[in-house]
């Protein structure tokens, strides 16, 4: 059987944002524009893939009772490395996302995949799962970002096509909940039809 379903499951059946509804804090807070959503998604995907790979490798050697502390340490290590790399090479992105990068450590998606998938599967499968779920998260965040940016600022990826101010509420928290809610309805309606 093909292993591709490990990837596709991640962004349709197990879509972290619209189906599992995990990682809501960065989802709602960083999707003020398409670019911010995309950057946050990619940052999370980086951590997810690497932590999935390492955790699936070390899982057989880790005693059950210290499982969670070990996983969190591994995840925190990758997040710190990511933070340093972003500070060094993409300072602008680091500045916009700021606090939300260290918060990836406690993102339920990352620990959820470690605990629920990587420690029961082989390295290759875990890597594919990381790519799938990471892509699912990235695409969801980017879509929310695109909708909020169009409604809130009249632009997409910074390219302005509606002059003027746009609907301010969509840049702020209430708009995040509204867009999130409607997209979730649409996504699940589409899934139910299939």
């Amino acid at each position: 059987m093909s292993k591709w379903h490990f990837v596709t499951d991640g962004f349709v059946k197990n879509n972290p944002t619209f189906v599992l509804v995990l990682g809501m804090c960065p989802t709602l807070a960083t999707t003020t524009s398409a670019l911010n959503g995309l950057e946050m998604g990619l940052a999370t995907m980086f951590v997810l893939i690497l932590s999935n790979i390492v955790i699936s490798l070390i899982a057989p050697m880790v005693p059950d009772k210290v499982r969670i502390p070990v996983y969190i340490t591994v995840i925190a290590t990758f997040v710190t490395v990511l933070q340093l790399l972003m500070q060094a090479f993409t300072p602008a992105a680091y500045e916009t996302l700021g606090l939300f990068i260290p918060l990836i450590v406690v993102n339920c998606i990352v620990l959820g995949r470690a605990e629920g998938f990587a420690n029961k599967h082989k390295v290759g499968e875990s890597a594919l799962d990381g790519i799938g779920v990471g892509l699912g998260f990235t695409i969801s965040l980017t879509v929310i970002g695109i909708v909020r940016e169009i409604l809130g600022s009249g632009s997409v990826f910074g390219w302005k096509f509606i002059p003027g101010d746009g609907i301010l509420a969509f840049v702020m928290a209430p708009g995040a909940f509204l867009v999130m809610g409607y997209l979730m309805v649409l996504f699940n309606k589409y899934l139910a039809k299939k």
Partner: peptide, 22 residues
């Protein structure tokens, strides 16, 4: 299968992981 959760194993595993991560 996972190593047994004896005190020695747990201490060894956590120290090793922390050391490598640092």
């Amino acid at each position: 299968m996972a190593a047994a959760s004896t005190l020695k194993n747990m201490a060894l595993c956590l120290s090793a992981v922390c050391l490598i991560c640092s």
